[in-house]
Design a protein around this nucleic acid. Structure first.
Lengths: 253, 253
DNA sequence: GCTTGTGGTATTGTAATATAAATAGACTTC
DNA sequence: GAAGTCTATTTATATTACAATACCACAAGC
């Protein structure tokens, strides 16, 4: 699916990675051996091997001579790797993954906001403020632009913690917001309500009030979590109400 | 340095990765080109390329034809990757990295403990309990064994959240505890005091008391944080007091 | 002078092939 | 039947060749 990637290797990584994450190859099982993959995908062994090295670096697989390349237990996967998150989002038909993403954010972001309030530099506060201004500008009309600004707002806060271990959380935020947009299927006007919530967090950080920032971030995320739960419940109901209507094949352009 | 790794590629990954993380090659700069690395390390281009693919998968570098392979900004690094954490620990001479590790744990683990209390399965609770029993058994005599059990205790809690996005946090925990052991340089008897703290967390999880688990985990980590701060302060003072005494080469067996 | 195009060139990307090392599984030996 | 040995298969490494790409310098045109 999707457009051709920058090079062959990335394409193979994406293809194999997705097949593993979606469960086509189960944990502990071996993926097809190198030559088989070469023939299946029409590329040289060099490309296959380099792709497998990429997947191994992400913790997805492990290669050993003669035994083949086996899929490692999911607890070893680097779940915060952008690629893995993307592949998982692609298999998230019932929104369960989105719930987990949000849950993780609720655990991490409040404290991160507090830390940002404690020691964001002037420049970092400026970055956060600019992201918020962009949200304010695009709310109500430009859904794509608002999404990008929203992601940037939260990512800048992670940056402002001054602790690099928070950086990978930005990947979760991005995936969560994108996925959320798809699931809740909201109107541009729905964004308007979240602008003041973000403003509260922004002000608390700039005023160096960690407690306030933490609380505001938490309630913002809990609010988002509730919206997602509602959206999932309704789509699940819609599905169970009309399970016999083939697959709604019509209005897909 | 260190013993030879499983294969050539891993050795090269480790070597290059460490050089990048320690800052020998700065962000934005290009690493030596493939042939140069081949000659420097005495391996074929195949090995170098596969190693670079590994590093690229971890977000450390990015290759483009003709431009070379450049080091990506640190915000793109997968800071929760076990290898990167290990390399960073290797450059952490002043304990600043350990402080960051602990800080991150303080942000994540309390909520994780609460989640575990909410929905750990019987089996998961049993795993946590077994880890604690192992801590109890080794405290006071077996430093290595206690460390392993401690790591397992916290990792099992991450597992018990039921949310895979918490899994990579286990890497931070492992590195933090190992590094902490080195920095605080504690006696086996010092472990005795942390057993009851862990027991409180264990009991709260098994009794399904999220609030209690969260609070207990937080105070445990704050306690650890204080100990680390103290240890760093004293070593820093020791260093500044005697900066001319070559490198204390003596009592290292 | 400045922009735009054009080709040379160095570097990574891909391919093909050969050989080495490792190991699962069959086989042999006692 | 247990332990060691052999063999075949698969990954690991090496080598070579060529393709694609993008930096750079130089030339052409405004």
């Amino acid at each position: 699916m999707a457009r051709t990637r920058r090079n062959l290797c990335e394409q193979v990584v994406h293809d194999l990675g997705f097949r593993i994450v979606m469960g086509e190859i189960r944990v502990g099982d071996a993926i097809p051996q190198e030559w088989t993959l070469c023939e299946q995908m029409g590329v040289s062994r060099t490309v296959i091997r380099e792709a497998i090295k990429s997947l191994a670096a992400k913790g997805l697989v492990e290669s050993r001579a003669k035994r083949g390349t086996i899929v490692r237990p999911t607890s070893d996967w680097n779940h915060l790797d952008p690629a893995i998150i993307q592949w998982q989002a692609g298999t998230d038909d019932d929104g369960r993954n989105l719930v987990r993403l949000t849950e993780f954010r609720q655990a991490v972001e409040p404290r991160a906001a507090a830390m940002a309030a404690e020691r964001a530099s002037e420049q970092e506060m400026q970055q956060i403020r600019e992201a918020w201004e962009e949200m304010d500008r695009t709310a109500g009309n430009d859904v794509e632009g608002f999404l990008a600004a929203d992601i940037r707002f939260h990512s800048e806060i992670m940056q402002a913690t001054g602790n690099p271990f928070f950086a990978p959380v930005a990947n979760v935020i991005g995936a969560s917001l994108e996925s959320s947009l798809r699931v809740t299927n909201c109107l541009p006007s729905d964004n308007l309500s979240s602008v003041p919530l973000h403003e509260t967090v922004l002000k608390a950080i700039c005023d160096r009030q960690p407690q306030v920032a933490e609380g505001a971030m938490l309630s913002m995320l809990q609010d988002a979590g509730k919206r997602i739960q509602r959206a999932i419940a309704t789509t699940a109901k819609a599905k169970s109400q009309a399970p016999m209507k083939s697959q709604t094949p019509k209005n897909r352009k």
